[in-house]
Design a protein around this nucleic acid. Sequence first.
DNA 1: CCTCAATGCTGCATCGATTGTGCAAACTGT
DNA 2: ACAGTTTGCACAATCGATGCAGCATTGAGG
Lengths: 349, 349
Amino acid sequence: MPRASRKATIYDIARLSGASASTVSAALGESWRERRISEATVEAIRSIAAAEGYSANMQARGLRKARSGLVGMVIPLHDNRFFSSMSQSFEAFARERGLVPVIASSMREPGEERRIVETLITYAVDYMFIAGATDPDAVSAMCNAANLRHVFVDLPGRGAPSVVSDNYKGAADLTRRLLTDRPISGGTCRDRLYFIGGDPTDYASARRIEAFRDALTEAGSPPGPGQIIACGYAPRSAMREIAALCDRLGGLPAGVLVNSLTAFEGVLGHLSGLPLEDLRSSVIGCYDYDPFAAYLQFPVHMVRQDAHGLIREAYRIIDQNANDLVLRMVEPEQIAPRTFYDRLFSDHG
Amino acid sequence: MPRASRKATIYDIARLSGASASTVSAALGESWRERRISEATVEAIRSIAAAEGYSANMQARGLRKARSGLVGMVIPLHDNRFFSSMSQSFEAFARERGLVPVIASSMREPGEERRIVETLITYAVDYMFIAGATDPDAVSAMCNAANLRHVFVDLPGRGAPSVVSDNYKGAADLTRRLLTDRPISGGTCRDRLYFIGGDPTDYASARRIEAFRDALTEAGSPPGPGQIIACGYAPRSAMREIAALCDRLGGLPAGVLVNSLTAFEGVLGHLSGLPLEDLRSSVIGCYDYDPFAAYLQFPVHMVRQDAHGLIREAYRIIDQNANDLVLRMVEPEQIAPRTFYDRLFSDHG
DNA sequence: CCTCAATGCTGCATCGATTGTGCAAACTGT
DNA sequence: ACAGTTTGCACAATCGATGCAGCATTGAGG
């Protein structure tokens, strides 16, 4: 039992075993065979190391080998179903490769994002994923200066391979589902579909808005100017906007496509104050998925993005050492109201 | 612009500035004043470093200083509202202190937990938080061997300071609320409250079960053997158990306290198949909080744990350098059905 | 008996940053 | 003008692990 407060080093093991530090290093690593250390010596050294509770100092190893064994990922925030799923997958794949994941959240602020990337570079992460980048070009510039391989996820960059959700297809399919449920009937504003939430300068939202527009146009009723209300992600502003919309129209419109769960929280804040009858005459869709939102007083069509698939593809790009500027698409999944249990249970057991 | 693919080091800056490496190191750090480097030299070195895009190599610094600037946290899983909130707070507090957070998930497996702690130790994290530890004693043993300060969160350990949610108070208050809503009336089994979900060997669940039992006893109706159904956290088993219970009783009981959101997903799978009338005659509580779950077809009393407060206290213990075996309690918050918006908006805006 | 090769290991420089020590030059006071 | 102090910096050791180059042994072959 090591009585000292300091951790044992290879020098301690060397002293205890009578071997040299380089032999200890080789014996504890993979290279002892090619360095012609006898099996007996290796065994002896290993048992002493185990007895001393030795474990390598990654700082020293990383310094010498110029790699850290760390993989970095930047996400906008932890406290979000989509991104925390990405974290979970990111970590699982990292462990599979014997790497240690470091996940940092940028709060969607370009400054914070840059600082995080800087930090990860100083820690010499072996490669990096950036999810929902706010300034992909700046990130690529920094990574290239540091010779660091990186992949953009969920929001593409021009400076590196990217893996994104097929926002266009997801939103187009969702819009078509809403239209099937509640076909565009009369010509009044109340008979139309509305798009609420998100930031039109945001890549994902822009694609979804485009799809919404195209799907409506394809159905013979291109959206008017007031039909797309990209009021950001905050619940509060979504609540204000849906209330204002209902005021303007004199009631709920035929359908609402809410862009993001946070905006949906706000919309719900308004809807929950309405009589159930009103809700039943409208159709609600939400881009993104929450199991409880699927169980509301009224049916909600949802889209579940494939966080695991996005990360899988990102790792695949890294594994293949592919540096060409690919833009890979991963399809989201449509979730019909109140049917998630079948899927959930067929997945897990 | 640095043409090489390698990152600039202090030696590069030293060469370019005509100063020595030690002067560069001092100039770029905090110690230049006490090392009596002239302000002019410092400025010159800093501008060259900036031009070269220099940033320190943390592996080298960490090796020399025997600290890494990393803080570790182990959580059971990322993909969970409570724990991802903890991640968010953990990261914010870490940044406030100029540290880099490393968060790893143990999947509630003791083996994985040990491996993660080992890994964090090899990366020389400056201190570590362990949330929902599965084997706190083993963790403490490893940390002590490595001379690593650590704090247990959400589930206490005997080997280090701990910060936990006041599970007893939260569950007792929730139980009393349910009793207020639906006072124990007749003597039949259907007129009672039931506790569903969680693992009785788990610290948090055990405390909650104890509180449930005490609150019922205090109300003059101690729970019978079948009234506490700790069937784990999986939605599937919770769904099976609530269905079996309703079968046994011939309908929904007077009230159900569901222990965890995941179990609640399962319960909901059953409840959603029942007529709304049946639900309205029962009262539902859930330990843990989800904004959408607060908007179901029927009122749900929820408990929101104070993830931010837990982490704040954990950091406070670290900051105070307090190593005595404190067990600090953080109170959860009761959330009445459908009232969360007031709070949400008063928080954020 | 001597050469040559294989075996099993050791020594030493190295990665990049920090820090204790030392040492000129400039400056102060007398 | 000279001792003593301050200023401003350079040198070199160090952190722990790695890997190249080399150096004794031992054994085989002629």
